[in-house]
Design a protein around this nucleic acid. Structure first.
Length: 560
RNA sequence: GCACCUGUAGCGCAACUGGAUAGAGUGUCUGACUACGAAUCAGAAGGUUGCAGGUUCGAGUCCUGCCAGGUGCACCA
């Protein structure tokens, strides 16, 4: 709930010359709540009123009508406003409990937002790096939706390229159908690794690989059949992971999908006279943008990543008519997306500005970059399995009678991993340590889940209907919690504005912590006149925590 | 070499548009289960916000220079 307007109106009443909008912009929420719920720094009025800020503060407070506030006081150059916790708190609770989809807004006006996310490579295992793109993209989809947009989640699969030629060669030489079926991705990776090892000794293999990829591009039946099979088997395994994370996609159109859509892009570039020949290759000069030239066609005529992304961008604009097009891709590819936007701009597309690279930091192990070839890889499957196992151990220790232990262990285990990934600023790198990722104490997903589970436990015990007309609580300890509940709308706006799931994650931690504090210090189920209102508070907290977790793609078990 | 990102407590991180005494977590030490779940709560200790200037009434936040780490810089994606 935003009481800034009330504060501004009160100030204007005392000093009619003031501009209300400027007041609203300058009113702030003190970090230290003992300084009030809202504060107005008077510095900006010093020139207009030709007085020292601390004098202005004192003068204004004298003229102010304090009705509707618990207290308004001047402290140095600040005017501090204290809301009346009892009335303001009950207003907030009423709003939380009575508003459908509390915290959401309709700013997006149902505009489409495409989100390019996850995008694993076929025939390679999903690592922790893919988790980032997957969960950040998924959370941004939920957050965009909470802001009134319509997200379209696109899994831009890495399902094309020379490596498929190599894979076909490897399979034909050393592979077996049974082995691939039994353990698709591991087996395919083995072939791939073996191919590279053999190619060291026998360089002709590389030519053979290129030849098979050429066959694939030319529509050779055998090549296509094998490619399709590898793709299907890999996708099956990916789907298991997506099911574990409970993430769905609207499209699986990967690189291969754009094979027949690149010619028109190249033609358009030619028409606009943007293509230049350089060392045999076709490039677009981007000097005007301070960028390196971007290659569109190799000297052998083959297309590149950029060519496909240009085709994908135009296809997506045509198909979805997006108002924003997000690409959740690692920060290493920053320049690629700058080039992509610049080229689209050169092609005369004004919507190039709507493309955004949502970059994120990379995951390292012992400070070193992950790489499939060097074997420095952390399999997502393993991490999730480990986390689930540890969660189950915790449950067996702390709540052995819980029904449906496996289900809950799954929710807590994956919740811990996903929350950990979303908790910090997405651009930060992080060094992978299993014990950090699957922690259940402190600033973690399970901490939030636990606060929610205990809230549910109280409501179960109370076992009574909540009367939404009796929401006033005299105990001022609850005000901090109520105030936070009132901020949820701003949090959702800010999370979208900054494209930052961590804004939501931090809020959830904050709300859980504030509630836990209250919970530990006072008895909620006391049989007095305000029991109903306290239960309403518990319900409001639980609703909000559950929704915050949902926006992050983390489930909120009612017991754990 | 050029461009971009990062630098805050032992560690990993917060601090929304510049605001008051820079905050929680973790680790260390200590206390709390006869109060609804101890995956919790309370307390102690821990800081020249990389360095040096500048702008401002006010700088962790903005500007300049430097230092350190990382990433990228056309025939991979």
């Amino acid at each position: 709930m935003d009481y800034k307007k009330q504060v501004a109106a009160t100030l204007k009443q005392a000093e009619p010359e003031l501009d209300e909008q400027i007041l609203i912009d300058k009113i702030e929420v003190p970090k230290d709540s003992s300084k009030g719920d809202y504060a107005f720094p008077t510095f900006i009025l010093a020139k207009q009123l030709k007085k020292a800020p601390n004098i202005i503060a004192v003068d204004l407070v004298e003229k102010i009508d304090q009705t509707g506030f618990k207290k308004i006081e001047a402290v140095g150059p600040y005017i501090n406003f204290f809301m009346d916790p009892k009335t303001a708190g009950s207003q907030i609770l009423a709003k939380v409990l009575q508003t459908e989809n509390y915290g959401h807004n309709t700013d997006g006006e149902a505009g489409h937002v495409t989100i390019d996310m996850s995008s694993p490579n076929i025939a390679k295992p999903m690592s922790m790096g893919h988790l980032r793109s997957t969960v950040i993209g998924n959370s941004l989809a939920e957050i965009s939706s909470a802001n009134g947009y319509q997200p379209i989640k696109i899994n831009h699969l890495g399902d094309w390229g020379t490596q498929f030629g190599k894979l076909i060669v490897a399979y034909k030489r050393w592979g077996s159908e049974e082995a691939v079926k039994a353990d698709p991705i591991n087996t395919l990776v083995k072939y791939y690794v073996q191919f590279h090892a053999e190619a060291e000794k026998l360089p002709e293999l590389n030519d053979e690989g290129r030849m098979w990829f050429k066959k694939l591009e030319d529509g050779d039946e055998e090549a296509i059949q094998l490619w399709q099979w590898f793709r299907d088997e890999s996708l099956k395994e990916f789907m298991d992971l997506y099911d574990t994370l409970d993430i769905q996609f609207d499209s699986f159109n990967g690189e291969a999908f754009y094979n027949d859509k690149m010619d028109s892009v190249v033609e358009k570039l030619e028409q606009e006279h943007k293509l230049v020949k350089s060392q045999g290759a076709q490039i677009v000069n981007l000097e005007a943008y301070g960028l390196n030239p971007a290659m569109i066609k190799r000297s052998d005529g083959a297309t590149l990543y950029m060519t496909r992304d240009l085709a994908a961008a135009t296809y997506r604009k045509k198909t979805y008519n997006f108002v924003k097009s997000l690409y959740v891709v690692g920060g290493e590819q920053r320049e690629h997306f700058e080039q992509l936007k610049a080229i689209l701009n050169e092609m005369g597309y004004a919507w190039a500005d709507d493309i955004e690279h949502i970059s994120f930091g990379m995951i390292t192990v012992d400070g070193k970059k992950l790489s499939t070839r060097s074997g420095r890889i952390i399999l997502l499957k393993d991490v999730l399995a480990d986390s689930e196992k540890l969660a189950l151990e915790q449950i067996n220790e702390k709540n052995p009678d819980l029904a449906n232990k496996e289900r809950t262990a799954h929710e807590v285990g994956t919740g811990a991993v996903v929350f950990h990934d979303l908790m910090n600023d997405r651009t930060l790198n992080f060094d992978f340590k299993l014990e950090e990722v699957v922690r259940f104490e402190g600033d973690t997903g399970p901490y939030v889940q636990y606060a929610n589970a205990r809230a549910h436990s109280i409501l179960r015990k109370a076992d009574q209907e909540i009367d939404e007309n009796q929401l006033e609580i005299s105990d001022e300890q609850v005000w901090e919690t109520e105030k936070l509940l009132g901020e949820f709308e701003n949090v959702i706006r800010r999370a979208w504005r900054d494209r930052e799931p961590s804004v939501v994650a931090k809020y959830a931690l904050n709300l859980a912590r504030t509630f836990n504090k209250y919970y530990a210090n006072s008895k909620i189920l006391a049989d007095d006149a305000e029991l109903n209102a306290r239960l309403a508070l518990v319900q409001a907290v639980s609703n909000t925590l559950t929704e915050a977790l949902r926006l992050l793609g983390v489930s909120a078990p009612v017991e754990m």
